[in-house]
Design a protein around this nucleic acid. Sequence first.
DNA 1: GTATTTAGTGTAT
DNA 2: TATACACTA
Length: 629
Amino acid sequence: MDDVIALIDMDCFYVQVERKFNPEFENKPCIVVQYRLYRGGGVLAVSYEARKFGIKRGMMADEACELCPELCIARVQETNGKANIQRYRDAGADVIKSITKLTPNVEKASVDEAYINLTSLVNERLKNYGTIDESLLENTFVEGLNNPEADKNLSESVPEDSGVKAFIKVCNNTCINNLKLLLGAKIVEEIRQEIFKDTGFRCSAGISHNKTLAKLACGLHKPNKQTILPKSSVQSLFNVIHIKQIRNLGGKLGDQICSDLKISTMGELCNISLKKLQHLYNDKTGQWIYDLCRGRDIEPVAERQLSKSIACSRNFRGPEALKSASSIKNWLSNFAEELLERLNKDLNENKRKAKQMVVCAKMQIKLENVSRSWPLTKYCKEAIVSRSFNLLLKFNQSSQTSDRWFPPLVLLGLSATKFEDVNITSSISTFLVPQEFQSNRFDYDTTPKTTIKEASKERKCTSDIKDFFEKKSCKEPPISMITSSNSHKKRRIGPLEKLWKNKQLSNNERLPLTGNQLVRTDYDSNTEGKSFSLDSCKSSRNNGKDNRCQSDTDDDENEIEIIDILIGGEKSEMKKKQFEWKLPLSSANISLEEVDNCNKVSVSKDARRDSQVEHKKGTKSIREFFSKN
DNA sequence: GTATTTAGTGTAT
DNA sequence: TATACACTA
């Protein structure tokens, strides 16, 4: 309850995005529509000018046009006979990126909404808090202290009393939590300005102590405004708020509550005993409702700026219902194609790969929903199409010798989930680690990396790597000098090596290596910074008591750090597993080769096994090399 | 004759 | 884990 949570909600987001492409839509009643054959298509977003005509989201476009003949209509792009909302996804990602510049505690809640946990930022500011001037909160309202009545009979140019002045007074005299909300609102004003500066998009916001209250507050003043909801105003607000207006109560549960208890407001819900709620709904839900109507909600803001799944589906209603195996296969192929395009874009931008695929369908008979899933091992269209089709075949009641399919499908879709990091070092380590110790024994990091902060870190690394390999005539590659105390020469560290070092910097602990010869890296100036050779060198280590590798020189120390990362030490450490290098490496080499006019990475190693030296070499494209598997 | 659609998250079993 | 379902914008 001492937390400060904000919800940012983009105002009629799709309309704003379309206005960027069609500036003539600015300041006019405008809607965004998807499809057109049936009654002009469905309305997805409505500008505030158009809302005055009574146009609502979910209406059909023909209906909307009747309400406002001069309505501007933007249509969602279509690819392969299916609506494609990538434009809005990309715009949404830009907004998240902008917010994340100020704080990483951002949860993407939908394509146009994000929760922000401002608690630590606010506590920072609290330390050197002087006063906050009303003029810094121009677009802020305070629920319960504002006075909408004040100007009702006055001219429109007189603004409603926002309540900010009164709230500042309250903050100075009373509760620290109100002051926190005030500081939070100041930060949100800044965030909203930043979003506008970066993207040109306007948004509304709510500032309160939890997600549910922030969401409710956000809806109180729109568009391009923000609202503080202090704890002291919650109960009186709840007296006029319908149960179904509250987040997560807008569906069947909300209906159930209203009809079971013959009530309609959150205030009334407060009069119901915990026991009764738990009896009607189950212990967990009952407790949750009991807390919620008292303004309590403990759901944390998850630090997550990327989607957990990427999906692609379409309805086939009425006559469109899919009635043949070939049409189903065709659509699966379209979906797989779109999905793979998005998955590859995601892989590039966010360095992660989906590990599970789900095919879902709704059958016309009984409108029964079904889904089947399988482990996704490679991004391959044909594999996805045949696997999903074969799984669906089990629901086909027609003879499989004919093309006829029964019951017809009214919905079909594919969804990719269970994302895992593709780690830059992992492919190198997978190669260097003997086969028999890979897989189970050596499970790379599977903690989801879904924040932009981390993703952009990775992105930066990739471009360094690309630069490293792609600059064909780089006489003096960007070099950082490392001096060693007792070494006779200065070692030059090229960008790729630097990258590994940088990764190490974020990792305090190191991995114990046992019974190994360590590998040494040298920068080869003759090849203009394009290759490394990794030679064996002598080094001993402290036997496990200390996690650090021992070495005689600073130089060795640096090298060992690099090698730790090379073999995936960082990842093992995170999983609290100890990695042992069973086969001593005598040498390893990473280099760039030109094959078929393409730059390829070649990695080779010599490992000693039963006094035999085993030589292995592999060549991959740069992209393959840096992706997992 | 039909008809919000599509894409997400979270929970229960 | 697999599947179904609820809820949301």
